[in-house]
């Protein structure tokens, strides 16, 4: 499960690892079947025939029924499992984009501040000092002014 909590600095961390998903079908099958019926995990499947043959005839049916029910339970878990994995992926993606959005928001804010500062500098009118005004008054009049 990707981390979604913010760190102490308030920055949402970008997920550094993939959500924990099974590498392949066998791994997923075994992880579920281990909980449901350990005799049916992939390593044990080839031994099913020997097991049933070693049973007393009256026990075989019950054993086979147990296996069928195990597969039925497996199926139900499997359906939920895919949804759960997709939910994890969505959570992972959401965290990644939330972190990116936070970064871009900070960048946007910074750029806007810079722009505002630039505009403020351009708008600022420099006030003339009394000395400057007096100096301008002492100058000869501009010949172009009638």
């Amino acid at each position: 499960m990707p981390k979604t909590q913010t760190d102490p600095s308030g920055v949402l961390p970008f997920p550094k690892e993939l959500p924990p998903l099974p590498d392949n079908g066998t791994e997923l099958y075994d992880s579920i079947m281990q909980m449901v019926e350990p005799e049916l995990v992939s390593k044990e499947l080839p031994k099913v025939r020997e097991r049933l043959k070693a049973e007393k005839p009256e026990e075989v049916k019950a054993h086979a029924r147990r296996y069928m029910e195990a597969f039925s339970t497996f199926n139900q878990i499997m359906k939920q499992s895919e949804k759960a994995m997709h939910k994890e992926i969505k959570q992972f993606v959401h965290t990644a984009y939330a972190s990116l959005e936070q970064t871009t928001n900070a960048m946007d804010a910074e750029k806007i501040t810079q722009l505002e500062e630039t505009f403020a500098e351009q708008k600022a009118v420099k006030q003339k000092t009394p000395e400057e005004i007096m100096r301008e008054a002492d100058k000869a009049p501009d010949p172009n002014i009638k």
């Binding site: 025939r49 086979a64 499997m78």
Partner: peptide, 18 residues
Amino acid sequence: QRVEDLGKQAKEGAGKTV
């Protein structure tokens, strides 16, 4: 045989899901 077939199908299902 049927149990083995079911096991094979279940593994295939898990593979497709993954």
